[in-house]
Design a protein around this nucleic acid. Sequence first.
DNA 1: ACCACCATGTAACAGGTTACATGATTAA
DNA 2: TTAATCATGTAACCTGTTACATGGTGGT
Lengths: 186, 186
Amino acid sequence: MAKTYEISATEAALLGLLTRGEMSGYDLQHAAETSGGFFWAPAKSRIYAVLPQLVTRGFATSRSVVQETRPTKQLYRITRTGREALQSWLEEPPTMEPERAPILLKIYFGELLEPEVLISHVRKVKAEATALIRRLEALEQEADGETPYGDLTIRHGLEWARAMTRWANGTEKEIAARLVAPAKPS
Amino acid sequence: MAKTYEISATEAALLGLLTRGEMSGYDLQHAAETSGGFFWAPAKSRIYAVLPQLVTRGFATSRSVVQETRPTKQLYRITRTGREALQSWLEEPPTMEPERAPILLKIYFGELLEPEVLISHVRKVKAEATALIRRLEALEQEADGETPYGDLTIRHGLEWARAMTRWANGTEKEIAARLVAPAKPS
DNA sequence: ACCACCATGTAACAGGTTACATGATTAA
DNA sequence: TTAATCATGTAACCTGTTACATGGTGGT
């Protein structure tokens, strides 16, 4: 029984992108930003920190490519071991944890804020969710069929964003209602 | 113009709980777990690390209480400065960032997995979301009116969890459909 | 003349987790 | 006698961010 290699989600993301071909850190950053990027885009410093580790651990190899007109770059290629590590990470059952968003704390301690401020917070959440919906709907069009399952992650984002707008609408009304009638109508 | 004190969300959470009365680290941990806990429960080591910092920065004071039958404890009380810092944190407009859940990566790279594994992942997400819904519905009953706005955070959790189940249901069907007809019906 | 793109990295910091360590009291 | 409650903390580790640093090429 071979030892299972533990990798982090970010390492899995990079290895996953590398299954699509040899890439540089620069390439990976852009691939992460454009393709799956709305849900997983590590800082570039993180990417450049992780890549050498992948090589050290045997999950990828790198080679220098000297260019005439551009800076020298490192191209990374996933190894067999890297594929195995990725595979076992992908096969692990996913864990979901409910959100840990600042807005929840601000609402929870709402008694300490003017209701108007609370409402403006809720409206901001709604505005951001609406903007995301537009962005994702556009993405859904352009990226049609580029990857076999990418659309399902976009739908995840859409469901999430729609849930946020629903919640924001309900919450806004509820706060306004309590302003008028602060007593609980039980 | 007085300098604004920057505090983290966890510090805000602890200060918020302290507005309800003098508490020990132990009390705070339990308060965090039970009241708002489903969306913000720091590890206890984090709580015990943050509390002395709050004192150092002038946001809280502490006093030792020697007990006969129990270990000596530190009770923390929020200061005027602490209230100001909390207030300005609460008034800052909230930022939302869409989710960064491992399931999304596993779906995104779904081509690397057997469809059956993918489906089992989706089912697990659904199961966890359903469990959360039950938990929150129960919470909604018991905690009725304990805090003025706590119920709105519970509804946030419910909207989120319902969105997850909707997504999971749609996704499961979609994957099954693609198993039968892998060509895209555009 | 200026800006965007290509390309890699370091340094400093922030925020978080799990596991370990200790030890009395009280209820089942 | 066994387990939960009360009560505080340390140590090791991991993951992540922003800001800084460098410098040529190609398009407007």
